[in-house]
């Protein structure tokens, strides 16, 4: 009996069209509906606030009113599947991409993807980045056989739009101004220490990092990177791996070691 009541209660909470569960009573008969609506409102407001907390730049770009509607429609379609509110909204970027009224802001879904990745990086497992000194100990002949373990927080959000610049402008990192150099940017999201770091990757880096995180050797990753972008610069990317604290361990596996 309680299970049925709880189910009715939960379903009625998120659906204003449904009647108040019949077992809900108040001292005055007509108070039940009014009081239940307070409950309903709090659930909606809390979830909208959770989305606004995770997607502040998305909210800033469309404005509060638009965001409230967008969030409310999302909540109805994607109620929380977990009590961990910091991860609520994993599907929000995809929902925005399919949202007709937001189509004019073509870069908005990618901004939301970047904000979602930011929260995941924040809550990713801690790991100590490897010091660049280990790179000095590697001989050039072994470099191609090196495999890197990347930090658990590392994520790449590739975009056809200048999402890193747009995000930085809205977060106050750089002054708000017209973006005259409108081009695609791949964002690197990581949290080597306590703060989430978002930066724009150089050409070919996204393919390079994807290959490394997939367990490929450096030589294989370079081939992927050059195929993706002929301007790929290995020197800059090796420096980036250590400057940005992306590597947590490395190993050298020569082809001879791998054969039986």
């Amino acid at each position: 009996m309680y299970a049925a009541l709880q189910r009715d209660f939960a379903e009625a909470l998120t659906d204003p069209g449904r009647a108040v569960p019949k077992d809900i009573a108040a001292c005055h008969a007509d108070d039940a509906a009014r009081r239940f609506s307070i409950y309903r409102n709090n659930v909606a407001v809390a979830l909208i606030d959770a989305l606004a907390a995770r997607f502040p730049v998305t909210q800033q770009i469309v404005g509060d009113d638009f965001f409230k509607i967008l969030a409310h429609l999302f909540i109805a379609a994607h109620p929380p599947a977990s009590p961990l509110m910091m991860f609520y909204g994993e599907d929000f970027p995809g929902f925005i991409a399919s949202f007709e009224a937001a189509k004019d802001i073509a870069y908005l879904p990618d901004i939301a993807r970047l904000e979602a990745a930011r929260t995941r990086a924040y809550h990713a497992e801690d790991a100590a980045p490897l010091d660049a000194a280990v790179l000095r100990a590697i001989e050039a002949k072994d470099l191609g056989d090196v495999r890197f373990s990347l930090h658990p927080s590392v994520e790449i959000i590739a975009s056809a739009y200048p999402i890193v610049t747009i995000l930085a402008m809205h977060m106050g990192g750089i002054p708000l101004a017209e973006i005259t150099d409108w081009q695609s940017e791949d964002a690197l999201v990581s949290r080597p220490y306590l703060d989430v770091d978002i930066r724009c990757l150089p050409p070919g880096s996204a393919a390079f990092l994807h290959a490394l995180s997939g367990g490929h050797t450096l030589a294989q990753a370079v081939e992927y990177a050059v195929a993706a972008h002929s301007d790929f610069d290995l020197g800059i990317n090796l420096a980036l791996l250590f400057n940005a604290g992306l590597v947590t361990s490395l190993s050298i596996v020569s082809p001879e070691d791998m054969s039986p």
């Binding site: 470099l143 030589a219 370079v222 050059v226 195929a227 790929f232 610069d233 290995l234 020197g235 090796l238």
Partner: peptide, 19 residues
């Protein structure tokens, strides 16, 4: 020593200089 036309030793030297 080379992968896809990129010199590994040269890149390593560049990286170490940058770092």
């Amino acid at each position: 020593t080379n992968v896809a036309g990129i010199s590994l030793a040269g890149s390593l030297a560049t990286a170490l200089a940058l770092l």
